[in-house]
């Protein structure tokens, strides 16, 4: 579903991402782990077409992000670490806007919005302006907007930050359900326990370079992910 080949992105003389290669297959829940400033967000933003990159290739379902960004984006949903949404819109207007962009029919969007907004307990406030929402509510709205168009690849940057425990649980359930249906999840996190329990694959990155990537069970063996992460990043 997603293949990152030799991705390099620099800001001035600093390499934010250095020759990074990853493969995320259909049905994977892929955890992307690293310390602050390791290059996680830069990689994610390159994948979803927000940042251009210096060299390398990003392939989404066989299509290059560089050559046909629009076709790639049609298959992706992205949720940033900070859910900055259009505060001048109401929740429902924002969801209608997203539905229009992803060409959802009236019936499909009504059904999806009803389902997800009920699950995330947002249905009652969708008529309110987004400016009146709390951080967590904005995060939930961003998640709903990502789920309604049934993306083949869901890319999330720190998705559990700001979510209440129930919403976090529902989101994890959706991860499992989506991957069971063949979609892929690629997300960054500092929550090592979450990554260990939820992800079938993980990658650890430091200073823009990949330290380790593969099946979660193989990487951590009998240790905890926290121990492995500390060993890898301290020894580097």
């Amino acid at each position: 579903m997603l293949e990152i080949r030799n991705l390099t992105k620099s800001y001035g003389k600093t390499n934010a991402v250095d020759n990074l290669s990853l493969t995320i297959n259909d049905g994977d829940i892929f955890g992307f782990i690293g310390h602050n400033g390791a290059g996680k967000t830069t990689t994610i933003k390159a994948v979803v077409g927000i940042h251009e990159f210096d060299s390398g290739e990003i392939i989404v379902n066989g299509i290059s992000v560089k050559s046909d960004a629009i076709s790639c984006k049609e298959q992706i949903a992205y949720i940033p670490d900070n859910p900055d949404l259009y505060e001048f819109l109401t929740g429902i207007k924002y969801l209608n806007f997203v539905s229009d962009i992803f060409d959802l029919s009236k019936a499909d969007r009504a059904k999806a919005i009803d389902k997800f907004s009920t699950e995330f307990e947002m249905k009652d406030v969708l008529s309110s302006p987004i400016s009146s929402y709390s951080h967590g509510m904005k995060q939930k709205l961003a998640i709903i907007s990502a789920l309604i168009h049934k993306p083949r690849l869901l890319v999330l940057d720190e998705p559990f930050v700001g979510l209440d425990p129930k919403a976090a649980f529902i989101l994890k359930e959706h991860f499992r359900q989506m991957t069971a249906e063949g979609a892929s999840i690629f997300f960054s996190t500092h929550g090592l326990e979450v990554a260990q329990k939820l992800c079938n694959k993980i990658a650890i990155i430091k200073n823009g370079r990949l330290l380790e990537a593969g099946e979660t069970d193989e990487i951590i063996g009998k240790k905890s992910l926290e121990d492995v992460f500390m060993e890898l990043t301290e020894n580097e």
Partner: peptide
């Protein structure tokens, strides 16, 4: 800014440019 609970949810379709 006051949060308003309830309210009718309306759904309408538009083209990308129109949206």
């Amino acid at each position: 800014t006051k949060i308003v609970k309830g309210g009718k949810l309306t759904f309408g379709t538009s083209s990308k440019l129109s949206a």
